[in-house]
């Protein structure tokens, strides 16, 4: 069986996997990081979105062997010291951006990739960007609000750091 090694949330990990193991399965089953969800079998829902080398991807549509050597961030890697949420997570909490929470990890990971590329997105840019993230509960309105607020908080954090 192939062996893969990668950095996940800042930690070096490795494991033996079947070639057909999806990155999502490796994250959930081998690493036991179950924040990354699997909501479909057709690459359409976005519950499984993680960052690979800084870009958001659907971890259900990438083989673990394809991520060999990569730098991966999952939802668990955002609040690094455990207690302080990432500003985007905080914004989802403050703006009621979730109901059941199933889509939320993917929404948050997707949103952070958007803000990394476009620090001040308009509501319509946010809605466009969410094409690949499906939510059965919220009707999206509060998700868009959360992402706009999260973007503002991320801008503030960046300005403070400079």
């Amino acid at each position: 069986m192939p062996t893969v090694s990668m950095t996940v949330n800042g930690k070096q990990v490795s494991g033996e996997v079947e070639a057909r193991t999806l990155l999502a399965q490796f994250i959930r089953e081998n690493l036991e990081l179950t924040g990354t969800h699997i909501g479909c079998d057709t690459s359409q829902c976005g519950a499984c979105v993680v960052h690979v080398n800084g870009s958001s991807v659907k971890s259900c549509t990438m083989l673990a062997v394809e991520a060999d050597g990569a730098d991966v961030t999952t939802i668990e890697g955002l609040a690094m010291d455990g207690d302080t949420l990432h500003p985007m997570q905080e914004a989802f909490r403050d703006n009621h951006g979730l109901q059941c929470g199933f889509c939320t990890p993917g929404m948050v990971m997707s949103a952070i990739d958007l803000v990394d590329r476009n620090p001040n997105p308009t509501d319509s840019e946010i809605r466009d960007w969410l094409e690949g993230n499906i939510c059965r509960c919220t009707g999206y309105h509060n998700i868009v609000k959360s992402i706009a607020a999260g973007a503002a908080a991320m801008r503030g954090q960046k300005a403070a750091a400079e």
């Binding site: 659907k58 549509t61 690949g132």
Partner: peptide, 9 residues
């Protein structure tokens, strides 16, 4: 094409 995550891969 598709969505951002499809376009990233």
């Amino acid at each position: 094409i598709g969505d951002p995550q499809v376009r990233n891969r």
